[in-house]
Simulated scan of single mutants.
Amino acid sequence: MNDQAGPVTPVVVVLPPEIDVTNCDEVFEQLAEVLAPGIGTVVADMTGTSFCDSSGVHAIMRAYESAAARDITMRLAVSPDGSVRRVLELIGAARLMPVHETLEDALSAA
């Protein structure tokens, strides 16, 4: 009998096309609900997100902090083109959280 656990596949949470004050609480809840025992990595897939205001970034940062408190790695997949990546860079979130250009990059990051 093999007692070693196999590699755990990251949980992917696909975020909505637009994240703002009207849905930032739902985005936080969507991310927070997967932060469970046994989960090692969560990838927030924002490759289809074309708009994210500061309230959305704040919700994602709160989820990132919640994940870290549970020893869960959280990564973002954000297209290099467009305003979402720029907002993350301007606010400084891209320096705090791992941000990858594609979902595949985020999934394969070590």
Rank of each mutant, 00 (worst) to 15 (best):
E33Q: 15
R75S: 00
V11G: 01
M1I: 14
F28D: 02
P7A: 14
V43K: 00
A110F: 11
D45C: 06
L107W: 06
H100C: 06
Y64W: 11
A59V: 04
P98T: 06
T9L: 13
M1H: 10
H58L: 13
D25C: 12
V21C: 13
H100T: 07
H100Y: 06
S54A: 10
P7Y: 08
V13E: 01
L35E: 04
G38I: 04
V99I: 08
P16Q: 05
A5S: 12
T73P: 02
E29Y: 13
E89D: 14
A109L: 07
S83M: 15
V27M: 03
V21L: 15
L35N: 03
G92A: 06
V43I: 11
G6D: 12
L88Q: 05
S66W: 09
D71C: 08
M61H: 11
Q4D: 15
V13A: 01
M46K: 04
A94P: 07
A77M: 07
V87Q: 08
M74V: 03
T41V: 07
D25N: 12
M97N: 03
L31W: 00
M46Y: 02
D45N: 07
S66M: 11
C52Q: 01
G40Y: 01
V99Q: 02
P10Q: 05
E101W: 10
T49A: 09
P10L: 02
I72V: 09
E29F: 14
S83K: 12
I39A: 04
V99C: 10
V12C: 02
A93G: 08
E26H: 13
A36P: 08
R86K: 15
T22N: 14
L76V: 05
I60S: 02
E26K: 13
A109P: 05
A36Y: 10
G40H: 08
L96C: 09
V21N: 12
E33D: 13
V43Y: 02
L90A: 14
A110N: 11
S108R: 14
P37Q: 06
R70D: 04
D25G: 11
A36L: 15
D105R: 09
A63R: 02
A59Q: 03
N23Y: 07
T102Y: 08
V99E: 00
T47K: 05
T9W: 10
S108I: 11
V78D: 01
C24R: 09
F51G: 04
N2G: 12
G82K: 05
V14Y: 10
G82Q: 06
L103M: 06
C24T: 07
I72A: 00
R62H: 10
S54N: 09
A94G: 08
L15T: 03
V87G: 07
L15H: 02
